[in-house]
Design a protein around this nucleic acid. Structure first.
Length: 954
RNA sequence: GGGCGCAUAGCUCAGCCGGUUAGAGCGCGUGCCUCACAUGCACGAGGUCAGAGGUUCAAGUCCUCUUGCGCCCACCA
């Protein structure tokens, strides 16, 4: 092995190490009944995805778990893959097409799909390569894609099964429609955003039987007296929907409108008669207490429409233009129509006041366009029956959320679950396995014919049987003729399925389902799901439901929900906000291990992660520190001079012959092993990382390495033992740190191994494992450290604490009195306790070296000696005669000068603070700040005075 | 309108079952290129643990309320 350079350069290590791991087959897992499986399926990133910090955090956590479990001897499998991400991917390809001046319709469906596949082949694996740079130890041979043949088969299978169970239906419902993407969206895909809008008051004249309606007499008066009122005023945020109004509703108990119920109003500009109905759903306190009812364009109105058998009038096209409306508005964009309507209403005296109105409007989660609630014929999954076992599983603890607070969120959603709209009017995705027989009936036929049609009939769910009668065929394979009439003119439904309809099957579809595979049998149910809170509903809940439907078993036992990555101002990191920190740039600059370490320390269990770029330097520095500690340790174990083989066991058997610092660091190591193991068991990743940082940096490097330098100059027995302890502590620590910082630990471990001649244990080293892996030479498969109770040593820890306290006290005095580095002050320790005296007598050399002192004397009682710095630590008196070591006159003068400066400052500031002008006129924080500074100055003054007295007494 | 989370050092955050003197990193001050590391070493300054009440021998930690910030869900047009 070549010598290690004085600085760790991740670039020299990472790529080569990763390739080596992969070439050694270390990421692979195969069913093996002799071992327990530990399985994670990756939350499949979108094929369009590029790695962001959220991915980095998510995958770092998964990799830590996988590496940890693998070292513990589990047969650890991490299944990777990507999601076809219907709308997102289609958008990307459409954008590329747009650059060529084409639309997808110009290509036609088949050519367009071909184009998407080409795009996928070219760019779709980008994110997977990026995951490799994170060090992810996935079994890449098993990479899956939600549009793979096998996974598509799973999708069809589950659609048909659910259909057979009567859980899939087609129906007219109000859905979220994105006029830009021109597709239906599930509720979760249309998050609401607070939007500043306007509330328009519009006056609908009352119908007077037998005569023309009257124009309102006092349109500009806000509250005309009831007796003069000849119209009903309604409020709306979307005036354009008035063209689809088919009623006006009021609360049945609302006295203001009592007389109007059952009468009619006239729709302004259109002159359609609207019945005035009464319904509890109307809130008398909002607006005017009267509401226009547009059953085809609003979810509440839709319910009213069904209940009161109103007309359903669709007045918008797929791309958000007006249709089936009077001429001046026909074909207008919905927002242009809104403007025109306002002008026209105003001119004709129908417009009341306009208020500013803050409300929540749904937006397309892909393109951010305001969604349009719209009546539409779509496919749905009945969710309530599916939810039952999924609710039970979480309630009875079969599946647990970490942190547990998400349980409530999950249950709350599941218990109020709505049916899932699964059809999407896009081209990229799994086409519905639904075929229509043209001969049987046209009713259930082509979607576009549904729109803009005035229908007197209340929409109903097309029940399964009815659908079949109408020639709707649901089939895994394309039928050649209609089972009902034998007709051969069959057309497959144009729609594709929601992206999540394939990803909800991910935990078992990736393992081979619907085929009964060995993988499925062995690795399912998976162990842990690691994901973000945003997709609890989209994905986690649905996977649980799918698990029970398809496998009769939960998909996983534990769900770890990590936080959201935010910037320092608390904003979510997103491209549009421009506050992204690119993980790949961080890797280039600081290294993968630094990225992983910092991400993990930043995330307390399930808490959001606030990041700034500087934090990654901490991780880099830690890797470098470890690198240099290893360089030092290896330099002490000169190759060939001696072998510290089987040091593990010899350290235990010879424990009593070790020095106190040896016993101390070994004891600290045991505690670290315990803490890291339990922390990882409980998803306390930051705790594990911090424990290792503290131990390695502060215990090992700051103290033990310095002590080792002294011990290595002592007898050959001590030298031998010290080397053994150093190698043991380092090698064990590397293994503990490996899941978090895989690259640097592997690199160093290889060096430690080759130089020291250690034969390290490999986990599950009972033969089968080794022959399967064909290797036993990677830290990846080294055994996870086990704590030895015999090495936990309270006595040594207490003694070392005392030694450290004394050393620190001496260093403190040296620093405060500016004792030059070369000066070696005498130290007189005194303690009444014989055991303490014995300890310091035997560790004199350590004290001298660590605190840079001269002679150390240990007495039972304090010596009478002048000119001494004195302090008491832990019952031990420490005297340091400093005469001759520092220039007393110079020091005295320096102190006196500083004290005078402080005197001036204190008196001036004191006067200033007593000045009422200052106190009343200066800003409050300035006054507070001045007070604080004064207090600080006084404190320093006291200290310097004490020092001066000390110096003067010498 | 429901639900959840967070308020601890100048900044970003730890602090698990309530238990001695509340920690870390960054930043700041002082002194050091000491033969593993200046991506470093030593020492130091800096905290009424948001506010109020309660439980307890004991509260940063548990309970209640208040204030401020953030997030999720929800059909007030």
């Amino acid at each position: 092995m070549p010598e290690l350079p004085p600085q760790y350069n991740p670039k020299d290590v990472e790529e080569a190490r990763y390739q080596w791991w992969e070439s050694q087959g270390l990421f692979r897992a195969e069913p093996d009944p002799s071992r327990k499986p530990y399985t994670i399926v990756i939350p499949p990133p979108n094929v369009t995805g590029i790695l962001h910090m959220g991915h980095a955090l998510n995958n770092t956590i998964q990799d830590i778990l996988i590496r940890f479990k693998r070292m513990q001897g589990f047969n650890a499998l991490w299944v990777p893959g990507t999601d076809h991400a219907g709308i997102a991917t289609q958008n990307v390809v459409e954008k590329a097409l747009a650059k060529e001046g084409k639309r997808r319709q110009d290509l036609g469906r088949d050519a367009f799909i071909k184009r998407v596949w080409e795009w996928k082949e070219q760019y779709g694996n980008t994110i997977l390569y990026q995951l490799k740079r994170l060090g992810s130890s996935c079994d890449w041979r098993r990479t899956r894609f939600t549009m793979d043949e096998g996974l598509s088969e799973a999708v069809t299978e589950v659609f048909v099964r659910l259909h057979e169970k009567g859980l899939i239906y087609r129906g007219n419902y109000i859905i979220n429609w994105c006029p830009r993407c021109q597709t239906a969206l599930a509720d979760e895909e249309a998050p609401r955003e607070e939007t500043q809008g306007k509330l328009y008051y519009i006056r609908y004249p009352l119908e007077v039987p037998g005569s023309e309606f009257r124009v309102p007499s006092s349109p500009k008066t806000r509250n005309p007296k009831p007796e003069t009122r000849n119209y009903v005023e309604v409020a709306t945020t979307r005036p354009e929907t008035m063209l689809g109004d088919t009623a006006i509703a009021v609360h049945p108990k609302d006295k203001r409108y009592k007389g109007l119920i059952g009468k009619h109003a006239i729709l302004p500009l259109v002159n359609r008669k609207l019945p005035i109905i009464a319904d509890e759903a109307v809130d008398p306190k909002f607006g005017t207490g009267a509401v226009k009812v547009t059953p085809a364009h609003d979810p509440v109105d839709f319910q009213l429409g069904k209940k009161h058998a109103l007309e359903f009038l669709n007045v918008m096209t797929d791309d958000g233009r007006m249709t089936n409306v009077p001429k001046p508005y026909e074909g207008l964009d919905r927002f242009d129509c809104r403007s025109k309507l306002i002008v026209d209403l105003e001119q004709q005296g129908f417009l009341g006041p306009i208020d500013e109105h803050l409300h929540n409007v749904g937006h397309c989660y892909r393109c951010h366009t305001a969604i349009e609630p719209r009546l539409s014929l779509q496919w749905f999954v009945k969710m309530q029956p599916l939810a039952q076992p999924a609710i039970k599983a979480v309630k009875d603890g079969t599946i647990t959320f970490v942190p547990s607070r998400w349980t409530k969120v999950y249950l709350n959603w599941m218990e109020n679950i709505q049916d899932w709209c699964i059809s999407r009017q896009i081209w990229w995705g799994h086409r519905l396995p639904v075929y229509y027989c043209q001969a049987c009936a046209g009713q259930a036929g082509v979607r576009s014919s549904e729109f803009g049609v005035r229908s007197k009939t209340t929409p109903t769910n097309y029940e399964l049987r009815t659908m079949n009668k109408w020639g709707v065929i649901v089939s895994k394979t394309a039928p050649t003729k209609c089972p009902a009439c034998g007709g051969t003119d069959l057309r497959q439904d144009e729609d594709v399925l929601d992206t999540w309809f394939s990803s909800w099957l991910w935990p078992f579809s990736t393992l081979g389902w619907p085929k009964k595979t060995k993988d499925l049998e062995y690795f399912y149910p998976t162990s842990t799901l690691v994901t973000a809170q945003e997709i609890i509903f989209f994905w986690v809940a649905r996977m649980i439901m799918a698990g029970y439907v398809c496998m009769k078993q939960p998909p996983f036992a534990k769900v770890y929900i990590h936080g959201t990555v935010r910037d320092l101002t608390g904003k979510k990191m997103s491209k549009s906000l421009g506050n992204i920190i690119d993980p790949l740039e961080i890797i280039d600059q600081y290294g993968t291990d630094a990225l992983r370490y910092t991400l993990v320390t930043a995330t307390a269990i399930g808490q959001d992660v606030f990041l700034s770029e500087e934090r990654f330097a901490v991780g880099r520095n830690f890797a470098n520190k470890l690198w240099n500690a290893t360089r030092f340790v290896l330099s002490t174990v000169a190759s060939g001079e001696w072998r510290v083989a089987s040091a593990h066991s010899s350290l235990i058997t010879h424990h009593s012959s070790l020095t106190v610092p040896d016993r101390w660091i070994l004891s600290r190591l045991q505690r670290t092993i315990i803490r890291v193991t339990t922390s990882l068991d409980h998803f306390l990743f930051n705790d594990a990382a911090n424990a290792l940082y503290d131990f390695l940096w502060h215990d090992v490097c700051d103290w033990y390495l310095e002590i080792a330098k002294i011990q290595l100059n002592q007898t050959s027995d001590v030298r031998h033992q010290t080397s053994g302890v150093l190698v043991h502590v380092l090698e064990t620590s590397l293994r503990l740190l490996h899941p978090i910082m895989p690259f640097v630990t592997e690199e160093l471990w290889q060096h430690v191994r080759s130089v020291s001649g250690f034969e390290f244990q490999v986990s599950g080293s009972t033969g089968t494992r080794n022959s399967k892996l064909g290797t036993r030479n990677s830290i990846m498969v080294a055994e996870w450290p086990k704590a030895s109770k015999r090495m936990v040593d309270d006595e040594a820890e207490a003694l070392m604490e005392r030694l450290q306290a004394v050393v620190t006290a001496i260093r403190n005095t040296r620093a405060e009195l500016n004792v030059p580095l070369g000066s070696r002050p005498l130290v007189r320790l005194s303690s009444a306790k014989p055991s303490v005296r014995t300890f310091f007598e035997t560790h004199r050399a350590l004290l001298q070296a660590l605190a840079q002192t001269g002679e150390v004397s240990v007495d039972a009682t304090r010596r009478r000696e002048k000119h001494a710095a004195a302090m008491v630590v832990d019952g031990i008196e420490i005297l340091m005669p400093l005469a001759g070591l520092i220039d007393l006159k110079k020091e005295e003068a320096r102190l006196q000068q500083k004290i005078e400066e402080l005197n001036r400052y204190i008196s001036q500031t004191g006067v200033r603070l007593r000045d009422s002008q200052f106190v009343t006129k200066a800003p409050k924080d300035v006054v507070e700040d001045t007070k604080a500074r004064l207090a600080q100055a006084e404190e320093t003054h006291r200290k310097l005075s004490d020092l001066l007295a000390l110096v003067q007494s010498m």
